[in-house]
Design a protein around this nucleic acid. Sequence first.
RNA 1: GCGGGCGUGAUGGAAUGGUAGACAUAACAGACUUAAAAUCUGUGGGCCGUAUGGCCGUGGGGGUUCAAGUCCCCCCGCCCGCACCA
Length: 869
Amino acid sequence: MTTERYNPKEAESRWQQAWDQGETFKAVRDENKPKAYVLEMFPYPSGRIHMGHVRNYAMGDVIARTKKAQGYAVLHPMGWDAFGMPAENAAMERNVNPRDWTYENIATMRGQLKTMGLAIDWSREFATCDPAYYKHEQAMFLDFIKAGIVDRRESMVNWDPVDNTVLANEQVIDGKGWRSGAVVERKKLTQWFLRITDFAEDLLGALDGLDGWPEKVRIMQQNWIGRSEGARFSFDIVGNSDDQTGNQTSDQKIEVYTTRPDTIFGASFCALSPDHPLTAELAETNRDLKAFVEECRATGTSEEAIQRAEKRGFDTGLKVAHPFDPAWELPVMVANFVLMDYGTGAIFACPAHDQRDLDFARKYDLPVTPVVIPEGESADSFDVGDEAYTGPGVMGNSRFLDGMTTDDARAAVIDKFERDNKGTREVNFRLRDWGVSRQRYWGCPIPVIHCNDCGTVPVPKQDLPVTLPDDVSFDRPGNPLDHHPTWKHTDCPTCGKAAVRETDTFDTFIDSSWYFARFTSPHADEPVNAEDARYWMPVDNYIGGIEHAILHLLYSRFFCRAMEKAGHFHLPEPFKGMFTQGMVNHETYKAADGSWVLPQDVLTAEDGGLSLADGSGVTACGIEKMSKSKKNVVDPTEIIDTYGADAARLFVLSDSPPDRDLEWTDAGIEGAFRYINRLWRLVAAPSHNLADQDGDRPADLSDAATTLLKNLHKTIDGVTGDLNGFRFNRGVARLRELTNGYEAFKEEEDSAGLVRRETLSALIRMIAPMMPHLAEEMWDALYQGAAPSLVSDAPWPAVDPAFLVDDTITMPVQVNGKRRDEVTIAADADEDTIRDAALAAPGVAKQIDGLTIRKTIIVPGRIINIVAN
RNA sequence: GCGGGCGUGAUGGAAUGGUAGACAUAACAGACUUAAAAUCUGUGGGCCGUAUGGCCGUGGGGGUUCAAGUCCCCCCGCCCGCACCA
């Protein structure tokens, strides 16, 4: 034994080696054990790990280690989400090869993660940019084509005319490309799509069964899928054959979708999307309309831009007839707020009951007729002013609907449409098909070949993978695959003639939509080995940031369904349990000139004033998410170097509830480090040699020993629940309470050593998921080097129920709801005894003197309340 | 606009409708020390009181209940997501 201060640096690397050599965390299928698949969202290899990673992986590690101790076969793997734009940006900025850059980053970050001492089966590691991985992704895509899950079609995209690439919505800032600054255009492009909307109903319905997910995430997905019930029907175009107006069109009618068929008699006009085919047709002969459409497209597609855009329209001059009254003509407008890719791209507007329609109608002086009359109003006098009425009511001004409720009217209109063969009931989803083409180099090549004669031909499976060329240059804009001298030129697999490869690559969200399944059989010759998947899937605890609540999780859910449909494996849902962790924040400061200042450079004067070393003033700017630009990042490597991995892990686990944001503080990490040393002293102190304190507990324990053992077993009971329930901060608090109790135990009688030994042994096993290195070191010290196993292989401590119950309990006594005293009484005392004791308590007696007792409430084991007046 | 969450000491945070503030951080006082660090002990919501104790107190207002931080209604503030989806 030693009284030296704990040396995390030396101890941590020693135990990490021991785990490595013993293959302690190798995941092994064992049909005799329950399984636990613990997964944190795998990282993008950006270069270095950050505190968010530390928090994420520390949480997963606690779960993985706890489950292992509790007898589960545990799968806890790690890999790399390695395709993506930053590698190309690095290539452009620093003239490095994206592949080299990526694998160098992976090497660095793997090294950093290993210093955290995570219980990971590293033999399963892979990167999504490994051809051995994306080979299977390509094969699956071919299976998806066969299964009818893939489409190739035109769609509107955000196009950056300088970088010659499609931009995602989030890459469009104020209508400009985030990189080039060029005004983004809306452009039609032929793209590959995965038909996720085919699964919309199921993806929505199955959310109900995901009770291991945060409610928030389920609601977000529900809103994202956005199911709506309504009607699709047509307006006939009036005077279509009359070419005096110059409005002759090839279509005879305009098809619209609405969720409010009940408001059909409040119709004021129809509106087409600027991208509607009919709009395009009319624009050919109408220069003003053409100019209007172009203006709309220039507005950009970012949500913000669209929202700020004022409602604007263009009267086409075309008229349509009301479906229930051929004599009633309505104007056809083109309106910038009508979306082409929702419903039919055309609407009928009822301004009285839709705010957008109302804004538009007021601007262009179109009629506003209320047809839904709220309670207490009359059809003649009800006026909507500038605020549309969207609530329920009774129909008015609506001919055969008059007097019906909105719900009845809705059904009546659809029924009539269906009887008259004019329209149908229809369910629509806000969810769009998933466009997966990206005009980028650093992604998985889409395995198809374009042949002039045969069209689009899949690459034969035996020719997979289609790998990326290494010799690429980024000195001109656009996709390097497209201007590579040889790569895209190949022969058609069908006819043998010269053909070209698809030069688009997959959206990187595809890579992350099935990696969790690949982890179950990372070396298999097929995407996923069915037996392994059956055993390990679904992921029991999936942990990551809320920012992936929609896309990644929805795509992964879709992929499982698509893989099943394509004949891969049966798995309804990929993630049984889901946990979203909070961010890591840190204080920020600005200098007098407005530039950000490193927090460690800020000096605090005695009067609380802030300054830099040169005396210039500094302003505190609040607690913000760690980011390089705000200069408030804390490097995990430095922290681990100084305090050790265990202290870093303990701090990120103990300082805040895991789903809330964590504020990084120097005081906090120092406090964690102090606790680690305090724990170490429990075994390092020479006063108690516990190595040979083995054997049965004596029957007659002292009061102090009983108190300690009660503390211990209640702690085991509580901590077990806390860790499984992601209440890490509460679990740590309990362990500190137990530590306090242990230190307060001063007895020296014979049995004290046994009690100490029992307590410490359990305490060490309970801290092990959070502070694994320290736990191994303490375990080793407790057994003086002769431990029967690593603590990482030791079983979770068992609760002795005998110590969970108390013989006597202390209950507070309230008088009229206010605590006045407490009574200590036998746990099994009957109500009369409890009542008598409560009334006799001095603090109570004083209060009820002279009052009449009206009622006594006794909650067994909890509280006594005496109602008196 | 729609949806969700949060609001508790100086600070992070505890609290199946049942003793509000566990556990920690900062601070203060004391012990040890030549001194400091480390460590240990104590104080630690506000007000009144030497004290036993009393009153008030979980963003504000109302309600349900023997009992409300917790449940219900209204309001205020902050945070997050979605956002012209007809």
